[in-house]
């Protein structure tokens, strides 16, 4: 029985989602402008840097021309942008390789670490958040509140060093360096990634659990929850069947924020565990002022962030009948 409300679910949701995509693209374009603009503030340029102080003016000029550094800034921006989109973000002068090759070697590692950490943290965070919300202000909730409140404020290097001290130095269970040999078995991979995953998860779990709790509690104070209880529905069922569908929007939004942290925020974790991911690559790029590489990394992280937000928005639109059909 297709009532008037169901007809054209996609027809009404698609334009909304399309709007979000367009707005995301615009933001990404603006982000690229900002990144490019900041990079331009660097005194000197790559050619000078590469050839050193002793180079003749002619040699520098020749190299400038080779890399198109003598062109006006708007033209360089367009070239760079086109390069980014077509998969050629330039040449890393420091690594003496194409930026795309440098990144290709690192990106899969980052994605693997992020995916595994997400797999661990999302279910745990949801459970903690829902439990806390259901026992609002009871002892369990207050305990969890102080715990997650403290966890979100911990510096990553404290969590990481403690993990190394306990699991690697004291118990000798896990390796302290997350180097993965090319022919490693899945088990070995998991073992070497265990501590980075643990460290990342601690912080992300706390963030997501707090947001989940807040989203659910916000719904619990709505009159429809009281109404559901007065219909004789048991509290646990009220949370699962009435509250969660309404809280899903803010919850996936929080997840998107936290998961984006798993990529870009892993800088310190990757450094401590010597893990060859994208974030530690970016730190190298900063130290060596390798601007093409730095710009490319920054754009990847921003794209990932915007993509996650877009997915969250889409889920929220699909979950909310007020947004998806009027």
């Amino acid at each position: 029985m297709a009532g008037p409300a169901t007809r054209g679910l996609l027809a009404t949701a698609l334009p909304l989602i399309g709007k979000r995509i367009a707005s995301g693209m615009l933001t990404l374009l603006l982000v690229s402008l900002v990144v490019f603009f900041i990079a331009q503030l660097l005194p000197g340029d790559a050619a000078q840097e590469m050839l050193g102080q002793a180079a003749t003016a002619d040699a520098v000029a020749a190299l400038r021309e080779k890399f198109g550094l003598d062109r006006p800034a708007p033209e360089r921006y367009v070239r760079w942008l086109v390069g980014m989109v077509t998969g050629d973000p330039g040449y890393s002068l420091v690594a003496n390789m194409a930026v795309s090759d440098v990144i290709a070697a690192r990106l899969p590692n980052s994605l693997l670490l992020a995916a595994l950490s997400a797999l661990v943290s999302v279910p745990v965070a949801l459970t903690i958040g829902i439990l806390s919300a259901m026992h609002r202000d009871a002892r369990l909730d207050r305990g969890l509140n102080v715990a997650t409140l403290s966890m979100v404020a911990l510096p990553e290097f404290l969590v990481a060093t403690l993990a190394v001290l306990v699991f690697s130095v004291q118990l000798r269970w896990l390796p302290s360096i997350a180097l993965i040999p090319p022919d490693a078995s899945p088990w070995l991979i998991l073992r070497s990634l265990a501590m980075p995953i643990l460290t990342l998860s601690v912080i992300v779990i706390a963030q997501m659990a707090r947001m989940t709790r807040a989203a659910i509690i916000q719904q619990l104070s709505q009159p429809y929850v009281e109404m559901a209880l007065l219909k004789g529905i048991k509290p646990a069922r009220v949370v699962l069947t009435h509250v969660l569908p309404n809280a899903i929007g803010p919850i996936v939004n929080a997840m998107a924020l936290s998961l984006s942290y798993l990529l870009g925020g892993a800088i310190i974790v990757e450094t401590i565990f010597n893990y060859p991911g994208l974030a530690s690559l970016m730190v190298n790029a900063v130290t060596s002022r390798d601007m093409p590489l730095l710009q490319a990394c920054a754009m990847i992280f921003c794209t990932a962030y915007l993509l996650l937000v877009l997915i969250a928005d889409t889920v929220a639109i699909l979950a909310n009948p007020r947004l998806r059909n009027r």
């Binding site: 009159p223 429809y224 559901a228 007065l230 009435h242 569908p245 309404n246 909310n320 009948p321 007020r322």
Partner: peptide, 12 residues
């Protein structure tokens, strides 16, 4: 309840 608009679950 007093406010039916708020007492119905908006997403069902």
């Amino acid at each position: 309840a007093q406010s039916a608009a708020a007492s119905f679950n908006p997403s069902r």
